[in-house]
Write a protein that binds this DNA or RNA. Structure first.
Lengths: 202, 202
DNA sequence: TTTTACAAACATTCTCGTATGTATGTAAAG
DNA sequence: CTTTACATACATACGAGAATGTTTGTAAAA
């Protein structure tokens, strides 16, 4: 029997791992606490010791993982950068590379986009998306101020387009069984995308 | 009590409506047949009379609705069209307009993308997506044969990009609470997208 | 010795599938 | 046109299994 504090932390981590895999494979509400406990090599008693209930498990899962939105925000949210579009492109590329490598990130992405019925998860996702959308909009505004953007889209519209492109790319990659090189094709795609949004001398 | 054939059909329809709303609002596996029956104003007896079980309900839901993939395919799957890119653009625009108007389509889209654990729904969605992806790839091939496309993307890659853009756009619109004019912004976006993929005299 | 970190057992609730009851439609026989 | 016979379209009731939350037991750590 394991009783030390380190072992307890290890148990907690194993439970989170099991939940992450099961939530991803069968959906959140179809996954049972008994199944999670069994997969983690413990009983439901351990699960109820570490977490209040299934929703609390979800919260913990979100907390320990970094979403692609956060990855992008962390590098792209710089103020007064001389080349906002270049900054954005680099941030997007970095995000794609990390996401392609990190299977944990991929699973949490699927769980979150699993249209979870719980108000908690939905609100959390909305907040993250709003945050990322705002960063994109600000970058677009800066680029506009420098006359680097085409006139036929507003900054808010550009944010929508980029959000849709990113999330669509990730979803398509996961759903299609990773049938293409995400960082490669995605990177070229984003580059072209930004190129297309730039002001043209026409 | 309703007993005539027309009334029975109306009951069946009411059950499907209720299931569509509940599946969309709470997810498939979190929705109970009792809840569906209550929302439809009947009991579970009626549900079990018209449908074998929950999976059968899902099948019936898919059957009575037209997915955006099918909408696009129906108009874009023409062989030997003189202007494949223009054809695609028009098909995409039509699809966006229909989707924006048809709340039933929107709900079924959400249910399908609900990462449903049942093998039936997942396989069904994969098939529809593969079909649409193939149509897009063929259109890209035709355009390439006419020298209308840029060289730095293969036909398959263009299909991926367009799929990601479309589904990302629809998801973003629904998840963001329809915070922008889908057909308007989406139409301009797709047009630019195709423009960007065209061969440039550079 | 007290608290921690679980396992094990229990009671409750939820959901499902099925079985049965019943009122209505429907068609043929008389 | 009525009566009979049966199918249709549900509602209601029942039993089984599963998932949940809680309580209790217990060995090891602190």
């Amino acid at each position: 029997m394991r009783r030390s504090k380190e072992d307890a932390e290890q148990t907690r981590s194993a439970i989170l791992d099991a939940a992450e895999h099961l939530f991803c494979a069968q959906g959140v509400s179809a996954s049972t606490l008994e199944g999670i406990a069994r997969k983690a090599g413990v009983t439901r008693g351990a699960v109820y010791w570490h977490f209040k209930d299934k929703v609390d498990l979800l919260r913990a899962l979100h907390e320990r993982s970094m979403t692609p939105q956060e990855v992008l925000i962390r590098t792209a949210a710089q103020e007064g950068h001389p080349d906002p579009l270049g900054l954005l492109e680099q941030a997007a590329r970095d995000m794609l590379v990390l996401f392609e490598q990190d299977s944990c990130q991929q699973r949490v992405f699927l769980i979150l986009h699993d249209h979870s019925p719980d108000a908690e998860g939905a609100a959390w996702l909305r907040a993250k998306n709003a945050e990322m959308s705002e960063v994109l909009r600000l970058l677009a505004l800066q680029a506009q101020a420098r006359g680097q953007l085409a006139q036929d889209f507003t900054a808010a519209e550009i944010a929508v387009i980029l959000m849709a492109s990113m999330s669509g790319l990730l979803s398509e990659w996961l759903r299609g069984g990773k049938g293409f090189a995400l960082a490669d094709l995605g990177g070229r795609f984003i580059a072209r995308q930004l190129q297309m949004l730039q002001a043209r001398p026409g």
